[in-house]
Amino acid sequence: MSNSICSEILDMLETDAKMSIKDMATMAGVSENEVKETIAKLEKEKVIVKYSAIVNREKVESDETEALIEVKVVPKRGLGYDDLAERIYRFPEVKSVYLMSGTYDLSVIVRAGSLKQVSQFVFERLAVLDGVSSTVTHFIMRKYKEHGVILMVKDKEERLVISP
């Protein structure tokens, strides 16, 4: 199983995870079995972590709210940031946690059913954790692009229908 086939298959899945095995095999120029085996291997090695849809929540009636929270922490001796990061990412409301360079330490993205729920999460669960010294909450007002996909697509073909 060559690296080029792995990256070819990953490229295709990242663009469209619903593509059929048959098409992937044709388009990569390999057999269907080879595609199946490569995907199985990539899944087993957790290179492919999960298949999910990119959803534009604005198009659905919902009060769901997301916030990006800058968290400053006091790292614990011997444990560094990982221990506190884990205590944060285990909350189901937390979508992502990154350790950052710069003026704060952890970047936490939280999603909850309403603005109020997000606020409550911050002051009842996050800010009170041992080791958290301060938080700054930024509510996300509109998403333009997510995971490399532009959400405000203009569905207009600019090209001529037929050209030489």
Partner: peptide, 26 residues
């Protein structure tokens, strides 16, 4: 005249037409 022209006129009026006639990158 270019042989492409007549097909262009018909195809560009047609709804839900899929074009494999485009000579430029997408």
């Amino acid at each position: 005249p270019s042989g492409i022209r007549k097909f262009f006129d018909i195809a560009s009026e047609m709804k839900d037409c899929i074009s494999l006639g485009v000579g430029e990158p997408d």
